[in-house]
């Protein structure tokens, strides 16, 4: 009986210590009840080099800074380069044909309203190392592994 109590106490204590050594929130690297200093604002990736896509339907990432780009009812700054009529002069990539389709697949003359707000899907990248390692595996790799078997 005594040994049981001692053992359970030891396990409880061990649990408490492991928890405190490993904070719940991995990104903050601190306990949730403490205040931490805000990190610096990260520099944006601005090299204009296209980033790879992890799956075919992934919206392309924005490889440049978009500070103060205005996208609202009045104006869309992104389209001043990426619209069909602008790409010849700017050499930017044209927004894909899907952006000209309504949800029933009909083609429109202009950008579909449901695709108007670029930042809903397209985001720039901060020049940072990842706080938690991503375990995402590309589908091609999964398929390759299966065929090897």
């Amino acid at each position: 009986m005594k040994t049981k109590i001692v053992l359970s106490l030891v396990t409880v204590l061990a649990l408490v210590f492991t928890v405190s050594a490993d904070p719940i929130n991995q990104i903050r690297k601190a306990e949730i009840d403490t205040t931490t200093e805000a990190p610096n604002i990260a520099k944006m990736v601005n090299d204009d080099v296209k980033k790879g896509r992890n799956y075919p339907m992934q919206p392309p990432l924005i490889p440049h800074n978009i500070r103060d780009y205005e996208v609202d009812l009045k104006v869309n700054k992104c389209l001043s380069c990426h619209a069909r009529k602008r790409t010849e002069e700017t050499q930017a990539s044209m927004i894909s044909v899907t952006h000209y389709m309504d949800r029933d697949g009909n083609f429109l003359a202009e950008v579909s309203p449901r695709r108007y707000f670029c930042n809903q899907c397209h985001v720039p990248q901060a020049d940072l190392s990842e706080p938690i390692k991503n375990t995402f595996v590309d589908l091609d790799k999964v398929l390759n592994k299966k065929s090897e078997k």
Partner: peptide
């Protein structure tokens, strides 16, 4: 254009 203030409706403006 519009680097320091919001832009107006840009319909018909060259380059927009």
């Amino acid at each position: 254009k519009g680097i320091a203030h919001e832009l107006p409706d840009m319909k018909g403006v060259e380059g927009w």
